[in-house]
Amino acid sequence: MNRLSHLERLEAESIHIMREVVAECARPVMLYSIGKDSSVMLHLAQKAFYPGRPPFPLLHVDTTWKFREMIAFRDATARRVGMDLIVHVNPEGVAMGINPFVHGSAVHTDIMKTQGLKQALDRYGFDAAFGGARRDEEKSRAKERVFSLRSAQHRWDPKRQRPELWRLYNARHNPGESLRVFPLSNWTELDIWQYIYQQEIPLVPLYYAAERPIVERDGALIMVDDARLPLQPGEQPRLRKVRFRTLGCYPLTGAIESEAATLPQIIEEMLVATTSERQGRVIDRDAGASMERKKQEGYF
């Protein structure tokens, strides 16, 4: 027989990780953020527990500022895969009227995402939560474990992280403690796109280029997804052909101009982009990268 391909090995590893969690933890949950990594993770979960359904619910921590298409896709996906979907919105944040314009993105993210996530995990008593983070995302993530231990206060203590050898994961934890588990740790962004292409995994249409109403702010292309986006004097949304590389709260997510309306075109554009973008299309990139960073620090 042939040696397995790299995607086959990554797939088998992710499935193995998910099954370990289900076998050793009392109450796992999958954080579903609707993006491409979450879509791959969910697809792998369906494979891992076939012919049954994944024996855990999906959790989406909503900030009330997600793209409308994301929410529609989220609900359709939960129906398609037949899993329970828990949507949690931080009620205190809503009561305080938190929004990214008045309070700034840092406060908005902290209250609506980070605090919201902790509330949801505590409320349902989840002791293990799957997240779609990858080690190749950032230098600081290169050392993150697959199984990351959190204290009862959800704190990450670097000194208590455990060495991971072979395929032996230590999922043991005391009451109150919990685990964050990253089944996609060893995947790269390119692996994700190739796997989506190979497995024909459905994605939110926002990843594909289309004409969308856009305003340009500090060089970032912001989509006017609903009437809550306060327009500045003289600002006029214009239809531009754009797509999104990462998805989050629409007022905080920059689009890029693109003609890529199919998966192969996106992959091609992404591969070519690494060279051209070296020459200094800083703004798009920073918008994308900082989004990722918030996700790690604040959200997961």
Binding site: L4, S5, H6, R9, L10, Q194
Partner: peptide
């Protein structure tokens, strides 16, 4: 297609 056959 070639990407799908890569080894790790």
């Amino acid at each position: 297609a070639a990407q799908n056959r890569k080894e790790l």
